[in-house]
Design a protein around this nucleic acid. Sequence first.
DNA 1: TGCTTGACATGCT
DNA 2: AAGCATGCCAAGC
Length: 123
Amino acid sequence: MPDTAPPVSPDSAPFRARVLALVERIPAGRVMTYGQLATLAGSPGAARQVGYIMNTVAESELPWQRVINAQGAVSTDKLGFGDIQRGLLVAEGIAFDASLRCDLKRLQWWPDEEEAGGQTGLF
DNA sequence: TGCTTGACATGCT
DNA sequence: AAGCATGCCAAGC
């Protein structure tokens, strides 16, 4: 007998779990912003939380390197491994300009592209 | 339960 | 263009 209701349903999964699930789906050579992840996770404006979460999984196997800020730059410079993050992204084919920023319009990934069956707006 | 912290975002100077 | 201050929301204590 169902004496115990489901503790958590997928929809009510912790904000953190949703963000991590999205990050895990970012394809190589693409990036997502903190604000975008927060919005997709169901909480627009919780961008800071996304960064906080990433800090707890930085040693995980998640492609944390593909999460950057809305300015197209990494936010890990003050943490001491900004160069490492950029290096990982460059290795995936992402280019940074003199201001250490990449072209978000071209590299920002959207989950819908997965269902669309291909890249959209590339070229 | 309530206060403080943050890998951000946005606006203004 | 770059720096400073404020707003946001979830997690930790």
